[in-house]
């Protein structure tokens, strides 16, 4: 059933409890404190933009790539998607985000 859903709709990601993430931005970079795990992470520009977007509402990687493309003129959009896939995997491993099911 899960697989069917995945075929018809792209997988979305979300932040389970929005207020558990404390984000302090300095310029394009940010420090993120995750109050569930107690871990502190440093994010670069793309990481920050991606996490802020996911925190707002559940998004798919494709939507995320579009969003980031609007802000930063990325030279190679194909490469961006691959980078985002890796980023999402890392965010998930850190417990910052989870797969979203409607």
């Amino acid at each position: 059933m899960n697989e069917l859903a995945q075929e018809s709709q792209p997988q979305k990601w979300f932040v389970p409890d929005r207020d558990v993430l404390l984000i302090k931005q300095w310029g394009d970079n940010a420090i993120v404190y995750h109050s569930k795990s107690g871990e502190t992470h440093q994010l670069n520009d793309i990481g920050t933009a991606a996490l802020l977007k996911i925190q707002q509402q559940p998004v798919s990687i494709e939507a995320l790539a579009n969003h980031i493309n609007n802000y930063y003129e990325v030279e190679n959009p194909g490469e961006l998607t691959i980078r985002l896939q890796r980023l999402i995997k890392e965010f998930e491993m850190l417990g910052l985000i989870e797969p979203f099911s409607e």
């Binding site: 302090k24 300095w26 310029g27 970079n29 420090i31 502190t40 440093q42």
Partner: peptide
């Protein structure tokens, strides 16, 4: 850079994690 300074300070602190 400030975010870099913060990470350096935090990782070198005695009890940053405990302070949550």
């Amino acid at each position: 850079d400030k975010s870099f300074s913060l990470m350096k300070l935090a990782s070198n602190a005695f009890n940053y994690e405990i302070q949550s």
